[in-house]
Computed example of a mutant assay.
Amino acid sequence: MPTLTDLARRFLPSGLTGLAGVACVGCCAIPLLLAAGVLSGAGWVVLGRWLPGLTVALTAAAGVAFWWARRRRHNCAGGTSCACGAG
């Protein structure tokens, strides 16, 4: 049975990347929604201020999660060429 860490290493990078992509699409859709009249000026004030920052934060978090998931774990299981200290 996989541990919680193994599951996090597997699903966290893809989940954060998906959220960052949705936020990026949202940033690009704001001008179109304004032009179509779907989004009002008040919506622009709210979304225009925090959505770009959210996109940058999610993208950075996805990059860190990708790095964390891909780095190698060094595990010494009694091998003869292990660089870990014995005992």
Rank of each mutant, 00 (worst) to 15 (best):
W67Q: 09
R70Q: 14
A62T: 02
G41S: 13
M1Y: 07
G79L: 09
I30Y: 01
C84L: 12
L39N: 05
G18H: 04
A35S: 12
A69S: 15
N75G: 00
G63K: 00
A61S: 13
F11G: 01
L33T: 01
L19A: 15
R10C: 09
R71Q: 14
T80N: 09
C27P: 07
P2G: 02
G15M: 06
R71N: 00
A65F: 09
T3Y: 06
S40G: 15
T5C: 09
V38Y: 12
G53W: 10
P2K: 02
G63Q: 06
T55D: 09
T80K: 14
V25G: 05
L16V: 03
W67Y: 13
W44R: 13
R10S: 11
T5P: 04
V46Q: 03
C24G: 10
T80I: 11
L33P: 02
A29S: 10
R49Y: 07
A23F: 09
R71L: 08
L4S: 08
T17V: 01
G85I: 07
A23S: 15
V64I: 15
A65K: 12
A86W: 00
R71V: 12
W50S: 14
A65D: 08
L19Y: 01
G43D: 12
V56F: 12
A20K: 02
C82L: 03
G15Q: 04
L51N: 06
R10M: 14
V38A: 13
A23V: 00
A86R: 13
P31R: 12
V25D: 03
T55F: 04
C82G: 03
S14I: 04
A35E: 10
A29W: 03
L4M: 07
G78P: 11
T59V: 00
A36G: 02
G79I: 00
A62I: 02
R73P: 00
W67L: 15
W44F: 15
S14W: 00
R70Y: 02
I30N: 04
L12W: 03
R70K: 14
R10F: 11
R70E: 13
V45Y: 02
W67N: 03
A62N: 02
A86N: 04
A23E: 02
G18W: 04
R72S: 06
T59C: 00
R70S: 14
P2Y: 03
L7A: 11
C84R: 07
T3A: 07
T59H: 05
L16E: 08
F11T: 05
W68M: 08
A86K: 08
C84S: 13
S81Y: 04
R10Y: 09
A35P: 00
A77Q: 10
L58M: 05
A60M: 09
G41H: 09
R71T: 09
A69C: 10
P13S: 13
A57L: 15
T3W: 06
L54H: 00
G87L: 11
G78N: 05
G79R: 13
R73F: 07
G79Q: 15
P52N: 05
G78E: 04
R72C: 04
G26D: 05
P31H: 08
L51M: 15
M1P: 11
S14K: 07
G41M: 09
G79K: 11
L39P: 08
A42S: 14
A65R: 12
P13V: 08
R49H: 03
N75W: 10
A36F: 10
F66R: 07
